[in-house]
Amino acid sequence: MAPEASKPAIPIPERIRIRRAVRGRAFAIRFRPGPAAIAAASLVCLLIGLLYLVLQIRTIFSDQLKQEYTGLVLEAVERAEGARSLAGLWAQLPDATAGRATGYLHARTELTHRLTSLAALVNASPSAAPHLPASSLAPDADLRGTDALLNDVSTYWRAQRDIDSADVRVRIAHVARTLIASAALLFCMLITALGMYAKRNLQLAGQSHEFEHAALHDAMTGLPNRRKLFATLDEATTRSPAVAASCKFAVLYVDLDGFKQVNDSLGHRVGDEFLIAVSKRFRESVRKGDVVARIGGDEFAVLVREFSTNAELGEIARRLIACVVQTDQEMGVGLVRASIGIASFPDSVDDYHRLVAAADEAMYRVKRSGKNSYAFADPAN
């Protein structure tokens, strides 16, 4: 016995690459984000954005309070500088001037009061700021030292005000960008939700259509079933009375003679193939507006929507019988023929609900009289 040819070995690097590709594909399928995951992630991002927005707004309010406090300090500096200027003027007057000593004393007292108020504001600042030394508050403090002190305090707090103003502007810009990003995120969430909703509706509509089609059609042959046939009959009779009165329609009930022997001798697979093939020929042999339905097993029905004479119906029946013979010969079965019963409305049957039953009864008359033919329903039905 010749040895079996071995399969070519796959190189190790190629195996590793294939395994990684398979794992990556499995990971992507497993962790593919769904609508719930996208909604949850968007909601988390939105909450983070709102939290950041709240913190920024809180900081903006805090910076505004700092600016207001800085304004109070700078106003106190201006008042102290005014008192210092007044004390300087009194100090420049000659000693012989009347009231010079009294005026200078009042000016120094006012300066001390202003410096004390300024020190209270500066030393009570909520932010870290240089405190005013106690020596500068003495009534006899050197005016030049007071000038330097007021200049330092004014310079520091003006710089602090500029810093707070710049910080407020930056944070306002952050708030504006956060609001824009949040609005964009909400818009994207809305569009995504609408898209998912529309996609879901399309899927449901497609599934509903599939379910409806499955409920009204035979799974094996694809032909309409009994339920669809009767629904089509109802549609044909619910048209406007003027149109319905001028139209005639008929049902041809087809039963395959000898089909049971095909299943018994050749198997159900051959029987199913026969039914599929003959169903296709039935559809091709009738007009586009006519309906071919599988009633069940080896029984079919053809709804002819409009016809002129019984001869036209007889011609259709002969074509259906020929379809069965051709299928039988093509598959080499040699057993199957067809018996057909024909009932028309309103000629032979005045109640369309009785059409299928009347055609069924006519078909059984054909079976009893030799099969492989057709017959019309008795007008008494």
Results as ranks from 00 to 15, higher is better:
233 L>T: 11
213 H>E: 02
270 V>A: 15
8 P>M: 11
39 A>E: 10
68 E>P: 00
201 N>F: 04
26 A>E: 09
10 I>N: 00
234 D>I: 13
346 P>S: 11
180 I>L: 15
323 C>G: 00
350 D>L: 08
303 L>E: 00
77 V>P: 00
52 Y>L: 15
363 M>E: 06
126 P>H: 03
216 L>R: 07
350 D>A: 15
374 Y>V: 01
172 I>M: 15
267 G>E: 05
248 K>L: 04
295 I>V: 10
170 V>S: 05
231 A>S: 14
1 M>I: 10
147 D>Q: 07
313 L>R: 03
334 G>Q: 05
292 V>I: 13
123 N>S: 10
296 G>K: 03
329 Q>L: 06
163 I>C: 03
310 N>W: 14
368 R>K: 12
284 E>K: 11
201 N>M: 02
252 L>R: 00
181 A>D: 07
129 A>M: 14
211 F>C: 13
178 T>L: 15
55 L>A: 12
2 A>Q: 13
305 R>A: 14
152 D>P: 02
60 I>L: 06
376 F>T: 00
309 T>P: 06
37 A>V: 14
179 L>H: 07
151 N>D: 13
142 D>E: 14
370 G>D: 07
70 T>L: 06
123 N>Q: 08
128 A>T: 11
28 A>M: 10
110 E>H: 01
143 L>C: 02
226 R>D: 06
151 N>W: 13
264 D>Q: 11
306 E>I: 14
66 K>I: 03
87 A>F: 02
28 A>T: 04
